[in-house]
């Protein structure tokens, strides 16, 4: 089973040179630590920045410079700032190439649920619905099962959904899976030490297992 850092590390292998990328809160934020320095990519923060840099030193902290998780950040050279309407124009307009976000559930047709648990305090969807409705490529970082062992890769989401037919790829603590256009989770890779049988038993939705399922490589 992969740690959160290893999930982030595996997702970072999907990043391509020249991409503009939006990273969600949680595991997706960690992806930034593993993107190879040889790639030129730009990270978007939906509160109005292209060019997120590392967290600041104590002396460099600026309360007027935060990311969408409200964390203090810095800007890389070549950054640009803009207002919230412009930020979501970039997102909805399809100018952001890759969106990486977390999920509570994903269904075999690519629906995602990640904003609301009935009976619990509803905090809001933030920018998640705009992002999933618009991004051309969405990768989800998630745990394969809930803490009590229930599969989160389902035939149909049970929680209120955030967007329909939008997820293209999932990296979980057990596997890398693609969602096929006709529906179904195509098993592409398994985490080191995890068997195909275990993934089968922990995937409630339709799982397609090819003849050969290589082990993930985490460099």
């Amino acid at each position: 089973m992969l740690t959160k850092e290893q999930i982030a590390q595996r997702i970072a292998q999907e990043v391509q040179n020249g991409q503009y990328i939006n990273l969600g809160i949680g595991i997706p934020t960690l992806v930034a630590n593993y993107i190879p320095k040889s790639l030129d990519v730009v990270l978007q923060s939906e509160n109005g920045l292209l060019g997120i840099g590392p967290f600041p030193s104590e002396e460099m902290v600026d309360p007027d410079l935060i990311n969408a998780g409200k964390q203090t950040i810095t800007m890389v050279p070549g950054s640009v700032l803009f207002n919230s309407a412009e930020s979501f124009a970039m997102i909805r307009g399809g100018h952001v190439h890759l969106t990486i976000l977390g999920a509570m559930e994903v269904s075999e047709n690519g629906d995602i649920a990640n904003w609301k648990i009935p009976g619990k305090m509803v905090k809001g969807m933030g920018g998640a619905m705009d992002l999933v409705a618009s991004a051309e490529n969405i990768i989800v970082a998630m745990q394969h099962c809930s803490k009590d062992g229930q599969s989160k890769l389902l035939s149909k989401c049970t929680l209120p959904i955030t967007g329909i037919k939008c997820v293209k790829k999932i990296v979980s603590d057990l596997a890398v899976l693609e969602i096929l256009p006709e529906g179904g989770f195509l098993l592409k890779e398994r985490a080191p030490g995890v068997s195909v049988e275990e993934i089968k038993s922990k995937t409630e939705g339709k799982l397609i297992v090819p003849d050969s399922v290589p082990e993930m490589r985490l460099s």
């Binding site: 939906e46 969807m125 933030g126 920018g127 705009d130």
Partner: peptide
């Protein structure tokens, strides 16, 4: 009223 952030902005 909870509204998607991009919808709110637009």
């Amino acid at each position: 009223d909870l509204i998607p952030q991009g919808t709110l902005a637009e």
